[in-house]
């Protein structure tokens, strides 16, 4: 007897979602921390809108793109830590003794990241709009924004899976979080790229893919519909997912040495 791939994915996805929903601390920190930073930044940097060429009068609208990236980064930690715990406790061995396919394991494990990504995107957007931010792309834009947020969450989640499979340690996975956070700080997080005056920072931020992810979110919030920015954002998100899944699949083969 061997379960079909969709059954395997479905069952592991169900478990992943249950695990996510039963760990309120994971959810709360992934929701509250980015919103706290949003409040601090939008309050402290609102005068930046006076700079010539700043794309909007509302720094809150400009800064609202940041929580979507921060929230997605949490999935590195959440998805990775869950899998690392499965390795540490031997639960992965239990799964390995079933006719489970590697693809089902990785896909199923990311289901929790999808749910968390949906919850995060909906919360950030709702809180931002209630606080006075704008969404130039309207209701359809909200759906695209959520889709981009979820795809990014899954992409970063796959990196978490890779880290867990490579190291087998929850602590090692958690230590990755600040490393990824650095990428956010050396991006166009606080100012648009063309307004960054310090040359080295401008160069680094221009080379940092996170800047273009932020721009994709901002295009929906500030401009409306910008096909180029959105395509680039989704392309980067897809590239992160593909690279993460490839690395995770390779690491899974080394981790699961079953014959």
């Amino acid at each position: 007897m061997s379960a079909a791939l969709p059954t395997q994915v479905g069952q592991l996805a169900r478990r992943s979602v249950l695990r996510t929903l039963r760990q309120p601390a994971q959810i709360v920190s992934a929701l509250v921390f980015p919103l706290f930073l949003l409040a601090v930044n939008s309050g402290g940097l609102k005068d930046a809108t006076d700079l010539p060429g700043f794309p909007t009068d509302s720094y809150l609208t400009f800064a609202l793109a940041v929580p979507f990236i921060q929230g997605a980064l949490f999935s590195v930690m959440n998805a990775g830590t869950d899998l690392a715990r499965d390795i540490e406790t031997g639960f992965l061995n239990r799964l390995a003794l079933t006719p489970l396919r590697g693809a089902a394991l990785l896909s199923g494990l990311l289901a929790g990241a999808v749910v968390l990504g949906l919850m995060q995107a909906a919360t950030y957007l709702a809180v931002g709009l209630i606080a006075g931010a704008e969404l130039a792309a309207g209701a359809p834009g909200a759906l695209v924004l959520v889709a981009l947020s979820v795809s990014l969450t899954v992409g970063f989640g796959s990196i978490g899976l890779f880290a867990a499979l490579r190291t087998g340690s929850g602590e090692a996975v958690q230590s990755l979080f600040p490393v990824f956070f650095v990428f956010l700080f050396i991006s166009s997080m606080a100012l648009p790229l063309d307004l960054i005056q310090t040359q080295w920072f401008h160069d680094v931020a221009s080379a940092n893919p996170v800047s273009y992810l932020l721009q994709a979110f901002r295009s929906l919030l500030i401009e409306g519909w910008n096909a180029g920015d959105l395509a680039l954002g989704f392309a980067i998100s897809a590239a992160i997912l593909l690279a993460g899944m490839y690395a995770a699949a390779t690491a899974l083969k080394s981790r699961l040495v079953r014959t």
Partner: peptide, 27 residues
């Protein structure tokens, strides 16, 4: 069938949920 050293269980799932997962994965 194997019960390896240390009961490898998910503390966040119930006994019945473990059964559901295991029966499904075994097809």
């Amino acid at each position: 069938g194997a019960a390896l050293q240390e009961a490898a269980l998910d503390p966040l799932l119930s006994g019945r949920e473990h059964m559901r997962l295991q029966t499904a994965l075994h097809g």
